[in-house]
Computed example of a mutant assay.
Amino acid sequence: MAEEQTQTQEVKDTNVKQEDGMYHYYISTATRGGDITCQSFITEKKLEHNLYPIVVTPPDDAIQNPVFDWTNIKWDEADSSTLSAKIASVAEDVQALTKSVTTIQTQNQATTKENEQITKTLDGLNANMGALTSMMSMISSKLTPTTSTESTTTTTTTEGGQN
């Protein structure tokens, strides 16, 4: 435990070269519970300021689970209450999405039924149109020859009467 405190003390002063000739920095790519909350690394290059995802200043010893808040440029606690709030928020989103999917599925089923009814109605109309077209063709074919036969007969009779 004494070794841990000594190492933490050495890491605290990041702008000073450590005994091993290296500089100690931190990586934090998350704001409250993301990918990397706080991971230390060592390099021989000296950094003067934060450069995402590298943080020059170490987190406070009072913070149990540090995460760097890049918006406010400070270390924060990534405690379980924050994580619980995120989980609750995600659970609410999942419930909302589930309700949306259920609603969409219900609407889809209703639309499918309506489409089937429309298709049946159109099939019936097409059958009726076919029957009407056939009847019109038969009527048209019967009317057309009768009219031309009568006019020919009338013409013949008229010509015969003049002779």
Rank of each mutant, 00 (worst) to 15 (best):
A2Y: 00
A2W: 10
E3F: 12
Q5F: 11
T6C: 14
Q7P: 12
E10M: 07
K12G: 02
D13M: 13
N15A: 00
V16H: 05
V16Y: 04
K17P: 03
D20C: 07
M22P: 01
M22W: 04
Y23Q: 06
Y23P: 02
H24S: 13
H24Y: 13
S28T: 03
T31D: 05
R32C: 08
R32H: 03
I36F: 06
I36Y: 06
I36E: 05
C38D: 05
S40D: 09
F41N: 15
I42V: 11
K46Q: 10
E48V: 10
H49E: 01
I54Q: 05
V55T: 15
P59C: 11
D60A: 08
D61C: 12
A62M: 05
I63H: 03
P66W: 02
F68S: 06
D69T: 10
D69Y: 08
W70Q: 07
W75G: 02
S80K: 09
S84P: 01
I87Q: 08
I87W: 07
A91G: 06
V94T: 06
Q95L: 12
Q95H: 11
L97K: 06
T98W: 08
K99M: 01
V101A: 14
T103K: 12
I104M: 14
N108W: 10
N108D: 12
A110K: 14
T112L: 10
K113D: 04
E114T: 12
T119E: 14
L122E: 14
L122D: 04
D123E: 04
D123Y: 08
L125H: 03
L132A: 02
L132D: 14
S134A: 13
S134P: 00
S134C: 03
M135D: 07
M136T: 10
S137T: 04
M138W: 09
L143K: 05
T144P: 01
T146S: 11
T149Y: 05
T152N: 05
T152H: 02
T153D: 06
T154G: 02
T155M: 07
T156P: 00
E159M: 11
